[in-house]
């Protein structure tokens, strides 16, 4: 079963967006383009207010992804759990589509008897191990994120450790918002390894507003550029999983 590459945006923020277009709308757009948007809200001494909590939940909902709000201490485990869960969700969607084609009607995995479900789950597990993954990470660098950045860096390094244990290839890219000159700034271009983050993060400064919407926008165009570069090379006829799940 060809699934193409799984594409995810991982948004790490500590509050509400307060600049630029509505992030929920951009997130929904991402979903239409086959990109899943996951959101992690990170708190430390502070607490994220209701508005922020709702926004985090809604961005993930619109983006067909997973959200979670945690204290900075649990960030590493949460990042990997959220990514995995979102991957499984997307893959289940793919498998369900195949099932519907085979069995007809609107049957999903959940409608199968438990024994059959187990066999299908094995397929999903295997896909999760082998599928190619592209994760674009958006890190909030507004003023209140200052003390959380080292934990974010640790969490991202940990994520690459977890995902690189899979057989499937991984590519990561990291952006921060707000950037020094623009709303969004690219920290790391697509790469399978995140080790260089250590030096890059130490030079980061925090401050300014939270342009979540524009950050998501920038993420989308980064995926688009990646896709067009690939099609230029056109090594294989990979099917891009672009339909909404």
């Amino acid at each position: 079963m060809k699934t193409g590459t799984l594409k995810q945006i991982l948004l790490i923020t500590d509050g509400c967006s307060n600049q630029g277009e509505d992030p929920i709308a951009v997130s929904a757009l991402a979903k239409e383009q086959g990109i899943t948007v996951n959101v992690i809200g990170v708190m430390e001494q502070d607490v994220i207010d209701d508005q922020g909590l709702r926004e985090i939940e809604n961005i993930a909902l619109a983006g067909g992804g997973v959200s979670q709000v945690v204290y900075a201490q649990q960030l590493s485990q949460t990042v990997q759990m959220v990514t995995r869960k979102a991957m499984t969700q997307t893959l289940q969607g793919v498998v369900n589509k195949e099932l519907q084609q085979i069995l007809g009607g609107s049957q999903t995995m959940e409608d199968l008897p438990p024994e059959k479900r187990g066999e299908v789950m094995e397929v999903v597990d295997e896909l999760g191990e082998k599928v190619e993954l592209e994760v674009l990470i958006l890190v909030d660098t507004s003023a209140s994120m200052k003390h959380k950045l080292p934990t974010v860096k640790e969490a991202l390094l940990d994520l690459s450790l977890s995902l690189n244990a899979r057989s499937g290839d991984n590519q990561f890219s990291v952006f921060v918002f707000p950037g020094k000159k623009n709303d969004v700034e690219k920290l790391l271009d697509w790469t399978p390894r995140l080790e260089s983050l250590t030096t890059i993060f130490s030079k980061l400064t925090t401050g300014g507003i939270t342009p979540t919407g524009p950050a998501l926008r920038e993420a989308l165009s980064s995926f688009k550029k990646k896709r067009s570069l690939r099609s230029l090379l056109s090594r294989d006829d990979e099917q891009y999983f672009e339909e909404s799940v």
Binding site: S76, Q77, M81, R84, E129, D158, L161, S162, L163, A165, R166, S167
Partner: peptide, 15 residues
């Protein structure tokens, strides 16, 4: 041979 799906940091050699 596959990637560990779930782990607890204290007992995880990656951590």
């Amino acid at each position: 041979g596959r990637a560990i799906k779930e782990f607890t940091e204290f007992y995880d050699r990656g951590y």
